[in-house]
Computed example of a mutant assay.
Amino acid sequence: MKNMKNNNFKLGNLYIIATPIGNYNDISKRALITLNKVDYILAEDTRKTGILLKYFNIKKKLYSYYDYNEKKKTNFILKKIRQGNNIALVSDSGTPLINDPGYRIIELCRKKYVDINIIPIPGPCAAILALSISGLPTNRFCYEGFLSHKKNKRIRRLNELKLENRTLIFYESTHRLLKCLYDIKIIFGKDRYVVLVKELTKKWENIYGNNISNLIKWVKLDLNRLKGEIVLIVSGYKPSLYKNNYEISPKIIKIFLNLKKELSTKKAIKITSDIFSIKKNLLYKFYIKKKY
């Protein structure tokens, strides 16, 4: 990496650097090399990042860069880069921008300041780590981050996700966890499988999976299980047939009928079956019975 301060014709680089989510040994060699060589570091919390840098004996100028000053600081940072300074962006922990500040400056670089080079330095991400050990399908998933702290908005969003058949990923805070779990139970049903992953890579790391009813009981047995940084991995919606074995959810019917307008019945059944992981013969029996 070259320092470009005295070269008016070259720009600095913007490095997006993932940092450990708990265990400092998880930092990459490349991240350490880059942090040592940049001119400035943008930090969501300068105190927390300062502790990390001190641990690795890295001395750099830190600028705070968080939700409430992101808009104000962005132009200042872009000016620094255009003057030839190499700048690193880090969050409190994990991969920047995943529920953390940074989107605005990246968006501007991609749309307006296209000559600025953005370089990612990969590393830990709590959402992906939790998904990988959940035992739930990982080939298709939906990252939702934090649900709203307002009950009405939280309920509305969960209702929108009720029929989502991909694995769902949520972050949740200590003081809101039980409220969130109760809402999931009410809207998704008492049998929906959920994996609670807390304090990943730390001394108190804990992973527990069960249907939502039993998960709530498990949490309430020891309220220390509420504490820490928490990721919830929720199984996707699995279409179920009702009492007569032929009544299928309205969402599946809608997709099937829309496909049938453009395709043969056989092909519409196959595609619907693939989308919702439902047996083709059940869809066929349903089609014959309803005579669509």
Rank of each mutant, 00 (worst) to 15 (best):
K5N: 10
F9E: 12
K10N: 12
L11D: 08
L11T: 13
N13E: 14
L14Y: 10
Y15Q: 08
P20K: 02
I21V: 11
G22T: 01
N23T: 10
Y24N: 08
D26Y: 10
K29S: 13
R30W: 00
A31L: 07
L32E: 13
N36Q: 14
V38A: 07
L42S: 01
A43K: 03
E44A: 04
T46F: 02
R47A: 06
L53Y: 10
Y55L: 09
Y55C: 05
N57I: 04
K59R: 12
Y63R: 09
S64Y: 02
S64W: 03
Y68F: 15
N69T: 04
E70Q: 06
E70C: 03
K73N: 12
K73G: 01
I77D: 02
K80G: 05
Q83M: 14
A88V: 04
A88C: 07
A88P: 08
V90W: 02
V90C: 02
V90R: 01
D92V: 03
D92M: 08
P96H: 02
D100S: 09
P101F: 04
Y103F: 15
R104C: 00
I106D: 03
C109F: 05
R110N: 13
Y113C: 07
V114G: 00
D115T: 11
D115Y: 08
P120I: 04
P122Q: 05
G123L: 03
C125V: 14
A126Q: 02
L129I: 13
S134I: 01
S134W: 03
L136T: 00
Y143L: 11
L147Y: 05
S148R: 11
H149A: 14
H149K: 15
H149P: 07
R154E: 15
N159F: 05
N165V: 00
T167C: 12
L168Q: 13
I169V: 12
S173C: 11
H175K: 15
L177W: 02
L177H: 02
L178T: 14
C180D: 13
L181S: 13
D183E: 13
I184Q: 06
G189P: 05
K190V: 12
D191Q: 11
Y193F: 15
Y193C: 03
V194P: 06
K198T: 11
K203S: 06
W204G: 00
W204M: 13
N206M: 08
Y208K: 12
Y208L: 06
N214V: 00
W218H: 15
D222A: 05
D222P: 03
R225I: 08
K227G: 00
I233W: 06
S235E: 15
G236K: 08
K238T: 15
P239W: 11
P239H: 12
S240Q: 15
K243T: 04
K243M: 04
Y246I: 15
E247Y: 12
P250L: 02
P250E: 04
I255H: 07
L259H: 04
K260N: 14
K261A: 01
E262S: 13
E262F: 07
S264R: 09
S264A: 10
T265M: 14
T265R: 12
K267M: 05
K267C: 00
I271P: 09
I271Q: 06
T272I: 08
S273A: 06
F276C: 07
I278E: 04
L282A: 07
L282D: 11
L282G: 00
L283D: 01
Y287L: 11
Y287N: 14
K291Y: 05
Y292H: 08
